[in-house]
């Protein structure tokens, strides 16, 4: 209850408008009942300072851009171009462009930086498109490639180790081949030619003269009808494994003196293979020169290379 003894407690809150409705009504009732106190309180209200409204002009001039090398107005105008300006920023833009003509021009210049997309047509759309048929063909080709690869591996796997080793070996004189510029063939792609020699039943007519080691080996091979000789033909033009089997009649050579046997045999093999190779190359549209071949018997030259040239 408000009395003359405690009214001052409520007076300040009343003047500052902090009393709740109930207390305010009670306090005003009290003032009505006590005119002297009412007069006193009225006098106090004149000492309360009213709030004045002052606005700092052009706050935007104090603001900083969040992006280095841009001014605040740059950021403001670009935000508008980008469509991300807030309501506050939009108000600022209106004020700025209203008051400052040069900034209005700036704003308009930024509006002009919107890029218009030119009309461009991609010229090869049809090449990019896929058809179901094409998909099927691609699948078939992919399966075919896998099958061919598998068969190739299987075939190589089935070869005797000796032949595989021979096909992978590098002849010592091969580095002297005339190699077309920039053309290299992997070692595994070297063509292999297997020669089966046609043998006569009577091979004991060979000369009884002493023979050198190399010659002996040739004669041994010749006299044994079961043995085969492997001749490798290395060509820089060949890009696939090529195996050619050729029967060669050596009856004539066997009747010659030993020192001529090797050379004549070489010439025989050379001419036989040249025909074979020429036919092989003709069928594939490849032009070969004889310098591109080396014929090798059992990894040794025996002068066959001379004949090959």
């Amino acid at each position: 209850m408000i009395t003359r003894e405690n009214y001052e407690i409520y007076a300040i809150d009343y003047l500052e408008g902090k009393l709740d409705k109930k207390l305010k009504a009670e306090f005003e009732k009290f003032l009505e009942a006590n005119p002297d106190i009412k007069e006193e309180i009225t006098g106090l209200t004149q000492t309360v300072l009213s709030k004045e409204t002052h606005t700092f002009p052009e706050k935007w001039q104090l603001k900083k851009s969040s992006i280095e090398s841009l001014t605040y107005t740059d950021e403001l105008f670009i935000s508008d171009v980008e469509g991300i300006a807030t309501q506050v920023q939009k108000k600022e833009i209106v004020e700025i462009t209203k008051q400052y003509p040069h900034l209005r021009n700036e704003y308009q210049a930024y509006q002009a930086t919107r890029l218009e997309a030119p009309t461009v047509f991609y010229p090869h759309k049809d090449k990019l498109k896929k058809t179901p048929v094409e998909q099927t063909i691609r699948k078939v080709l992919a399966y075919a490639a896998v099958i061919v690869l598998a068969m190739t591996i299987f075939t190589l796997w089935q070869k005797p180790d000796k032949n595989i080793a021979a096909s992978l070996s590098i002849p010592r004189y091969e580095t002297n081949l005339l190699t077309p510029a920039g053309l290299t063939i992997p070692e595994i792609n070297r063509p292999v030619v297997v020669v089966r020699k046609k043998q006569e039943k009577h091979t004991n007519t060979t000369s009884s003269k002493p023979i050198k080691q190399k010659t002996e080996e040739v004669i041994t091979n010749i006299s044994s009808p079961k043995k085969q000789q492997t001749i490798n033909i290395a060509s820089k033009e060949f890009c696939i494994n090529q195996e050619i089997t050729q029967d060669i009649d050596i009856t004539f050579e066997q009747n010659l003196p030993l020192k001529y046997q090797n050379l004549i045999l070489a010439k025989n093999i050379s001419s036989t293979f040249r025909r074979k190779i020429n036919k092989w190359a003709r069928e594939r549209g490849i032009i070969v020169s004889r310098n591109q071949f080396i014929i090798r018997i059992n990894n040794k030259s025996y002068g066959i290379s001379i004949a090959g040239r």
Binding site: D74, I78, E82, E106, A109, Y110
Partner: peptide, 17 residues
Amino acid sequence: VYIFRARKFLRQYIGDP
């Protein structure tokens, strides 16, 4: 940042519209 800088550059490049 890249877009804002690009626009700043474009604006400077076009000069006075």
